[in-house]
Design a protein around this nucleic acid. Structure first.
Length: 576
DNA sequence: GCCGTTTTCGGCCCGACTGTTTTCAGTCG
């Protein structure tokens, strides 16, 4: 079986966990974790690298991992992996997901009490057997039970959209504490990762004790996991975990940087500091043997010490941002204010809840100069897809509204289903009548990767198609993406001059931002679209902006940062 | 496991909090 890089990354990450459980050298464990992360974010063609034996050119992949990756790519497995898996039950690996349990403790539970599933662990806790185990106690037992509950209830991850709302509310609440001088949200929320495990709040204060007392007694806190002098950890009513760190004002920029991460970015920064004979931690930057403190008033000053431009939080994934910052070639990331309009909105003509006119007003109210309507096409029967007659009717209504309305222009579009064979839902003479055509998949997800890739490439090769929407079909925390060779799709989009959407729906956030740099290298544009099914649905573009920034996109790469004339010209030129 | 303009061997980021211990290992970020 042939594995793609994400499947291989999953195996390597599992290897890391298995090795950890075996008590292997922690640096070996880290090497596997690191390789998994690198592969997940790899923009080059893996087949190509393997064929040319260039895997070891990638930082973090040496001779051994290159062999394993090559083996996985060709056969879907390798000897050491098979043996390790055979020696450790699946349920034991699953126990690692329980907060408070790491490899060492899980190893003890497994070896001493022969526990191999989370269910068994729960029974043993309830029977009071865990508390008697050496190194454990009553509190550990309690904590494990709570941990099991949280794993089951929330599987530990949350959509960044939900986390953002919760984090903003929490930050507001924290700022109301008189002892708080400065406060910011850090962590994966600040980096805009599509799903997050918890919320990190960083605070500057002269009185950390007062801040901690205040924090753990906020009304939204349902459980206090830990409370210390500078760090506390709680569970909010939404089920999201939140951590708070309190430091001095002098330390704050370093704390904010450190707790924004990512882990990989921090490791890179600390290594860089070390090369400069400095030490970087969450409290400061220190030079030489006598650890002379180097003051920095903000994050930009920290980067500047190493000759780096300020790296926006979204880019801090150790995916080339350090090199770009050193070369002064970081992108000027797109901002919400750059959006001139939006495309991809539904109305009552198909499955939207608002009329054309209501959507037009809502878009205008949000400061957009144009709104591209794209209801579902006819085969999307479940969503009230439009018949040819309904299309004509909608176009007449749009023409009338455009005469009547000021300050907003409606564009005629369609979200056209890509059928199983890669053909589109309407004939060419119908497709020609739209200002723009979005193509997307809503059915027949179970195809092989090569079939699906062929299907999508066929669809976007139709000269009427301007945009490919939600290219992987994923629903975060709910449905995996369908199998598709994104690199081939991007190459095909480049050839056809087709843009690939960043769908801003909180559950989609699809395109995956990890493809951004590759898209821009090939000159493929994107579209930050709301996929709105109501007037409020227009507001989600702010999540799409976050993902676009994370993907290194600049406003020049984003179609709806174009003025309406340029946009229409772009679509027309592309059809010729 | 990986890596190298000090090194092909000996490093590999660093600190807080907890619980179970009487000085520290494990976990987490």
């Amino acid at each position: 079986m042939n594995m793609d890089k994400h499947q291989i990354a999953n195996v390597l990450a599992e290897m890391a966990a298995l090795l950890d459980l075996k008590g292997e050298n922690p640096f070996k464990v880290r090497a596997y974790e690191n390789a998994a992360r690198v592969l997940d974010g790899l923009s080059q063609d893996l087949d190509h690298l393997i064929a040319r034996k260039q895997l070891t050119d990638i930082k973090g992949i040496g001779a051994n991992l290159a062999t394993h990756i090559t083996e996985l790519h060709a056969h879907g497995t390798f000897d050491e992996y098979v043996q390790l898996r055979r020696s450790i039950p699946e349920g034991v690996v699953a126990m690692l997901a329980i907060p408070g349990l790491g490899a060492k403790k899980v190893g003890t539970l497994w070896k001493k009490l022969k526990i191999t599933t989370i269910d068994e662990l729960e029974k043993m806790c309830r029977a009071g057997k865990i508390a008697k185990l050496e190194g454990f106690g009553e509190k550990s037992q309690e904590k494990i039970l709570k941990g099991i509950e949280s794993v089951r209830r929330f599987s530990g991850r949350h959509l960044v959209s939900e986390a953002h709302v919760a984090a903003a509310a929490l930050l507001d609440a924290v700022k109301k504490c008189k002892a708080v001088l400065r406060a910011e949200v850090g962590g994966s929320v600040r980096r805009y990762v599509e799903t997050v495990g918890d919320i990190d709040i960083l605070v500057a204060t002269k009185n950390p004790e007062a801040v901690m007392d205040y924090f753990v007694t906020l009304p939204d806190v349902t459980q206090v996991v830990a409370k210390g002098a500078t760090k506390s950890s709680v569970v909010l009513s939404s089920g999201i975990n939140a951590d708070l760190r309190a430091v001095t004002e002098r330390e704050f920029p370093f704390t904010l940087h450190y707790f924004t991460g990512s882990k990989a970015h921090n490791v890179a920064m600390r290594s860089l500091a070390k090369q400069h004979d400095m030490k970087l931690n969450e409290y400061g930057l220190f030079k030489g043997k006598d650890e002379k403190r180097i003051p920095c008033k903000d994050e930009a000053a920290i980067f500047a010490v190493f000759g780096l431009d300020f790296i926006p939080p979204e880019l801090r994934e150790d995916m080339g941002e350090m090199e770009a910052a050193a070369k002064k070639s970081l992108p000027r990331l797109v901002e919400q204010g750059d959006l001139k309009g939006v495309l991809h909105a539904h109305t009552t003509y198909s499955d939207g809840r608002a009329s054309l006119e209501e959507m037009a007003f809502a878009a205008k109210k949000r400061g957009f100069a144009y709104l591209g309507i794209s209801d579902h096409s006819k085969s999307a029967a479940y969503a009230g897809g439009l018949s040819v007659e309904q299309i004509h009717q909608q176009h007449r209504e749009i023409d009338q509204l455009n005469k009547k309305l000021t300050g907003i222009r409606l564009l005629k579009g369609i979200e056209c289903d890509i059928l199983a064979d890669g053909s589109l839902d309407y004939s060419d003479d119908i497709l020609e009548t739209f200002d723009f055509v979005i193509a997307s998949i809503h059915s027949k997800f179970t195809m092989t990767e090569s079939e699906m890739t062929k299907r999508i490439c066929a669809a976007i090769s139709n000269p009427h198609v301007d945009i490919l929407a939600h290219p992987t079909g994923r629903l975060l925390l709910t449905r995996d993406p369908y199998p598709v060779d994104m690199l081939k799709v991007i190459q095909c989009a480049a050839k056809q001059g087709v843009a690939i959407e960043i769908n801003s729906h909180p559950q989609r956030l699809d395109l995956d931002w990890r493809w951004g740099q590759q898209m821009m290298a090939l000159g493929v544009k994107t579209l930050i679209s709301p996929d709105a099914h109501s007037t409020d649905g227009l507001d989600v573009v702010r999540f799409g902006i976050g993902i676009a920034r994370k993907g290194w996109f600049e406003k020049e790469d984003v179609l709806n940062c174009f003025g309406v004339d340029n946009l229409l010209m772009h679509f027309q030129r592309h059809e010729k």
